[in-house]
Design a protein around this nucleic acid. Structure first.
Length: 591
RNA sequence: GCGCCGGUAGCUCAGUUGGAUAGAGCGUCUGCCUCCGGAGCAGAAGGUCGUGGGUUCGAAUCCCGCCCGGCGCACCA
């Protein structure tokens, strides 16, 4: 049990004894103090209780303190202000709690006692195209959620629910047939850039040529119906595009693998079942030629009921149908306790309606939690008529920005910086490190902000060597590793490098922060936002840098102090690596 | 029009199941390299938390109104 939890248990017992169990709940029971002068933790339970009990908060605080037994953990509690109870952890307790986690790859964070089966649906790249920034956020955010929930002990079922179906592919197949005729042998030689060019051609044809638009819709339908020549063309497109996708995932350090593929097409056979069930349940109505479900509470701009369309007037299914089939599959077959879908914020209404339909149809029981993580758009700042404007992130020509190109530019920039800062790196190592720094910069920038907000893409800010950036975090880690290298210490040591002791405030502050590692995860499971994790990592790096600056480690005057500082550095490095790993950021040994 | 999200330092953002003097980065200004990686550290200046009410011992946080911005609202996903 962590130090924080142990203290919490004792404070809870005291508050229950002094005020009753109804006053021993929530955040006010125990929280970290924001100012070191108020100790390390504080219990604020007396304040809200005073209102309910009609007594003075200070009197209640006194009662709590009388019942409080923190022997061996904290110094004598102090009552301050209107009735805060301030607690200060004893150095010995802090030191031994930390040392107990030495060598633990989990850094003392216990797995959840009631693990869940959690489906995390993310990435879902636009196939037939190279991966572009549009898929960047879902991939990075979703991957971090998957990693973190998995770390907490949940069974994570990654699902790559990419769109290999529908109008987009109908369009492509229609173009292919138009270009190459019925003989699709020529397809074998097509590479991704060529496929992309054809797709662009198809999109504009669809806008300008009604006959082609009809062909495209028809091909989409044929795919769903399994027409052989359409399917053959489709298969080829998939092979090229998936190979490309795997390569980008690998470079981006993403844990989504081919075995997590669960594309839209895999629900093909379930779509009619979805329709039949809705019919049988009496939820289905026909409106303007389409088969729809009306759910209370959703209205269109005229104030009329807004339907969820599950079968288009032309007989084709759409993404609501597929999402419903997916929902059904995830609950019935995957036995999910929780379903998380990561897409852009603009789809919120769709998922709200879809989930409402799924609830009504009984596919999504009350016991299953559904969370749509909706994220904002990546923007670029441009100047127009002398005014600064934010627009969706596109190339100057107006095209989509490819992740491949993003990585290439990042590597180029990082190599230049690395060359300035550390000329000793061999070129091949420098390139490898540049990629890691780029990925760290891209991911950290994205994750440190709450997902639902928009942000402006800015290389200089993202790869800045100072400030709250991925590079700063990796630098802190590299510094520690460098100390270890000089010390000749085993970086993966199973035995303590020294007994922790605190001879300088910077040591204790760092130690306290390290001991709070577990705390960041309680909020995480609720919000599914990595922002607090990023904050924790940044504070850790800053506190380490301060300690490093103020306290000589290898040159410490006394052997015991030297060993203690080495141990503290070890514990810091382990936690930094752990948290960065949950963000999808791999550490480097040199930079 | 309805719905969702947002408005916090010059800029970019944390903090929002109510708690002590509202935090960080960038930028600006000022210090610190005979010392383990200065890609670092320390300090200063900078705030009517959009606005007006309300609840409370206590509000950036909860409730109501209003203003501004973004997004969504029938067969694309």
């Amino acid at each position: 049990m962590s130090l924080h939890q142990e203290i919490r248990r004792r404070v809870e017992a005291a508050v229950v004894a002094a005020l009753g169990p109804e006053h021993a709940q929530g955040e006010s029971l125990l929280q970290p103090s924001r100012d070191p002068r108020f100790g390390d933790f504080q219990c604020n339970a007396a304040l809200p209780a005073a209102k309910a009990l009609g007594s003075k908060p200070r009197d209640l605080a006194l009662k709590i303190v009388e019942k409080l037994d923190l022997a061996g953990l904290c110094a004598a509690p102090e009552i301050a202000g209107p009735g805060f109870v301030n607690l200060r952890i004893e150095d010995r307790a802090l030191a031994s709690a930390l040392m107990a986690t030495h060598g633990d790859p989990r850094c003392g964070v216990a797995p959840r006692s009631a693990p869940q089966r959690v489906v995390v649906d993310y990435s879902s790249p636009n196939l037939a195209k190279d991966l572009h920034v549009g898929t960047f956020r879902t991939t990075v955010i979703g991957d971090s959620i998957a990693r973190t929930l998995e770390f907490l002990g949940h069974t994570v079922l990654r699902q790559n629910h990419y769109g290999d179906w529908g109008t987009n592919f109908g369009t492509l197949v229609a173009v292919l047939k138009r270009e190459f005729g019925p003989d699709l042998a020529a397809l074998e030689r097509l590479d991704l850039p060529q496929i992309e060019a054809l797709y662009t051609q198809g999109s504009s044809l669809r806008k300008d040529d009604p006959a082609f638009a009809r062909d495209a819709a028809e091909e989409a339908l044929k795919l769903q119906q399994g027409e052989p020549s359409s399917r053959a063309a489709w298969r080829r497109l998939m092979d090229v595009t998936l190979a490309n996708c795997a390569e980008i995932y690998q470079r981006l350090d993403v844990t989504m693998k081919p075995e997590h593929d669960r594309p839209e097409s895999s629900y093909n056979a379930d779509l009619s079942v979805v329709l039949d069930d809705l019919q049988r349940l009496g939820l289905l109505t026909t409106s303007e030629g389409a088969k729809v479900v009306f759910v209370d509470g959703f209205v269109n701009r005229e104030g009329e009921p807004l339907p969820a369309i599950v079968q288009k007037a032309d007989g084709g299914y759409n993404y609501t149908t597929t999402d419903l089939a997916a929902m059904r599959h995830r609950v019935r077959n995957l036995r999910a306790d929780r379903i998380v879908i990561v897409t852009d914020r603009g789809q919120s209404l769709h998922f709200e309606m879809m989930a409402a339909v799924a609830r009504k149809a009984g596919w999504l029981p009350e016991s299953t939690v559904f969370t749509h993580v909706g994220y904002g758009v990546i923007q670029r700042e441009i100047e127009e008529d002398g005014k600064k404007k934010k627009v969706r992130f596109k190339t100057r020509a107006g095209g989509t920005v490819k992740i491949r190109e993003l990585l290439a530019e990042g590597v180029e920039r990082c190599e230049k910086i690395a060359l300035e800062k550390n000329a000793e790196l061999a070129p091949s190592e420098r390139t490898e490190i540049a990629l890691r720094l780029t990925v760290a910069g891209l991911k950290y920038t994205d994750l440190k902000q709450r997902p639902d907000t928009d942000y402006v893409f800015d290389w200089d800010q993202m790869l800045a060597v100072q400030g709250d950036t991925g590079v700063y975090l990796l630098y802190a880690y590299v510094r520690i590793r460098s100390v270890f290298e000089k010390a000749g210490a085993d970086a993966a040591s199973k035995v303590l490098l020294g007994e922790l002791r605190f001879t300088h405030p910077a040591e204790r502050e760092l130690a306290l922060h390290l001991a709070k590692c577990e705390d960041v995860f309680s909020e995480y499971e609720r919000e599914l936002a990595a922002t607090p994790l990023c904050r924790y990592a940044y504070d850790l790096a800053t506190l380490f840098n301060r300690f490093y600056h103020d306290c000589p480690i290898l040159k410490a005057e006394e052997e015991g102090v030297r060993a203690a500082r080495l141990e503290l550095s070890y514990l810091a490095a382990e936690r930094l690596r752990l948290v960065l790993g949950l963000l999808g950021i791999r550490t480097v040994e040199r930079m």
